[in-house]
Nucleic acid binder design. Structure first.
Lengths: 393, 393
DNA sequence: AGCATTAAATCTAGCAACTGAATTTAACGG
DNA sequence: CCGTTAAATTCAGTTGCTAGATTTAATGCT
């Protein structure tokens, strides 16, 4: 498999155009490809043959067999050969690690996960864990296809080149453990909230949106004008500004953390809550608070409302400053967030101006980051197919 | 003047590459162009001849005459023919109108300005004013070159397509007066703060920056990862979020307005200020406050400090949320802002985290918007030279 | 003045790759 | 079995690049 290493600029250009069409259009006829690439039939079919031999695309059933034409000679049809390459996405969180292998179209082939105690994890353990997960999903995918890209999401800012700033302390450095050097093939490191944003954006490609990845902390992935924002040192989407903006010391604390904090504060100031008071303070989890709220517990409801109001303030800033139309809450707790978002929608008109953004919870659950990683991998391929399919050297 | 209308894709590509090089590199030799375009000498010189005939580039003195080589046959040198085209930038503000004509490199050839009473201005008057200014600078430029683009800056949000949202009330619609239909040649409409940002960004192309265009109101132009942010309905950079974020009702009020407001409030609460108390309330201007501050007036100093603190809060948000490294204050009052920015730099470490952004006042004065318009025009040309130099139809 | 040296420009044949038109093929229906 | 339709295939013609050989324009040395 592989194309002529040295080809003319023009041919390269046309092959790329054709591959891009293959990526976006499923099965296609020569006529469609002619339209997309503005080449003649002879050239398109020539390229298709070449790419078929190289293994990047394959011939599909013809237009008559597919029931698309009645008269005339049936058109040959081609499609991207999904099995021509493998991509792997990894969510290398603080404690939770997930990996997913997918084909060229982004269809999942295998997944794996692992939990580690963040207190005892060092760079070596992070690297070996990711190595193992990659190996696992690669084997489980039962694919002999070449691994084209591995995208790794980490909970630290990452700039456009995959680097994280050196912090006082070493948390970011620990998270950005230098994966590229320890894995096969091209490796892309990206911030986890950014990957969530890519996952959500893939479902609404034309929309300006912010994705808030919430959990113990909160981070935003910002998609404006079709671009993911990075900023200097990968700082875009960093939420520490909340401290300055909302003038409290909560900063980038996440929903789970706030749920616990405010519940315990409520209990400490003597508020009654049969459901929550029964749980020992160090065992209380966000899930408990959400459950109690669902069951009608008043303290829990207040806490959730307060979280909703906080999200409304964040939303007000994002909408006005960035012209965002849609805000997605993602992360493990996303599925429980509807009551919180209800409150957000309620108060938003009081603190912001129309048009108000859509506020939704992500439907991707714990897989957002890993799905975003796959999405990122596939869109890299789409944008520059030859760089990854037929790399130089 | 004009190239072969129908040329091959490849030729088009190479011509574009060569023109791009001409735009960015001043005078160049064939060897340099070969490097930049990865074409052979024969091809580069062929293209240069063609473009010289077409009038887009011209031959300059050879490398020996320029003192660049001692041995061997001197290299022919070419450069963009600055006079091959004209671009015009317009700042169509609320009351102040400015226009500038420039050559292909962005060098100013002529300027013109006009003041109108905003209370009596309607769409027709705005259009005719801009038409007149364009005609004026075009004539004053003494250039017979074709007008390639006109870029118009307006104080209203503008989306990626040049449209402004329809507001309740009609201010934005009045500002975005449908200029393209009433002017010759391609016309681009853009938000004024965004154009300021382009003007500032041109001086530091690699830097993530926000430009705050301040006056009666405040608007931001955001350059992140080399892109100007627009957002839905052109809403990016809209500063009304400050109301929600800073929890006051000042919102997007600008420096000039705040200077007056807080001075009057100070005087009303009985603060003494020999300099400012003498000025009748309805005659007080921001310039007076800046002057009094300069002279050591205590009330004025307090007001300026307060403004500086407000800017610090804005800076804290921009830095954290967008990873901005540099914040430029632009607009008519920019040159007086140094004392304000001093205060901003002082308090920023208290409310934000390192790394802190550079905080500077724009050196472009009242011309920021119009310069940004020219910059925008030239960079459009640079990005897609053939579209404007040799338009289809 | 004449000649070697250097570095560029120019000329040439050759070739890659696309286009357009003519021809062939693959179906169907009467 | 033949006409019709719509596609694939073939092929000559053209564009536009490259690589290499040749020529040109300068300088400096003898």
């Amino acid at each position: 498999m592989g194309l002529n290493v040295s080809m003319s600029v023009l041919r390269r250009l046309n092959i790329e155009a054709l591959l891009r069409h293959a990526f976006t259009s499923g099965t296609f006829t020569a006529a469609e490809a002619m339209e997309a690439t503005s080449l003649t039939r002879a050239t398109v079919l020539g390229l298709c043959d070449e790419l078929t031999v190289a293994g990047w695309i394959e011939e599909a059933e013809d237009s008559r067999a597919a029931g698309l034409s009645r008269r005339g000679r049936p058109a040959r049809r081609h499609r991207l050969r999904a099995g021509a390459g493998l991509v792997i996405g990894v969510d290398a969180g603080r404690s939770g690690y997930r990996a997913m292998a997918a084909d060229l179209r982004g269809a999942a082939l295998a997944t794996a996960r692992r939990e580690l105690d963040p207190a005892t994890v060092d760079r070596e353990l992070r690297i070996s864990t990711v190595q193992e997960l990659v190996r696992e999903v690669r084997e489980a995918s039962a694919s002999t296809a070449p691994l084209l890209v591995t995208v790794i999401g980490i909970p630290a800012p990452v700039d456009s080149h995959g680097a994280s700033p050196i912090e006082v302390g070493t948390f970011w450095r620990l998270m950005n453990s230098g994966f590229p050097a320890h894995l096969d093939g091209p490796v892309v490191v990206e911030n986890d909230a950014n990957l969530s944003a890519l996952a959500e954006h893939a479902q609404h490609p034309e929309v300006n949106m912010a994705t808030l990845l919430v959990g113990e902390r909160i981070g935003a992935g910002l998609m404006v004008d079709g671009h993911l924002l990075h900023g200097a040192l990968g700082g875009a989407g960093e939420m520490r500004f909340l401290e300055a903006a909302l003038q409290d010391d909560i900063g980038a604390e996440g929903v789970a953390s706030l749920a616990r904090r405010w519940t315990l504060e409520g209990l400490a100031t003597g508020r009654s809550s049969p459901a929550l008071a029964a749980i020992p303070a160090d065992a209380l989890s966000a899930v408990d608070v959400f459950a109690a709220g669902q069951a009608g517990d008043e303290l829990a409801r207040d806490v959730l409302d307060r979280i909703g109001e906080r999200i409304a303030r964040i939303a007000a800033i994002l909408v006005s400053l960035l012209g965002v139309e849609r805000i997605v809450m993602a992360g493990a707790v996303a599925s429980s967030l509807e009551p919180v978002l209800q409150r957000t929608r309620e108060v938003l008109p009081d603190i912001a101006y129309a048009p108000f953004p859509e506020l939704v919870a992500s439907g991707l659950g714990r897989d957002v980051v890993v799905r975003g990683a796959i999405e990122h991998a596939v869109s890299r391929l789409r944008e520059d197919p030859l760089a990854l399919l037929d790399p130089p050297t």
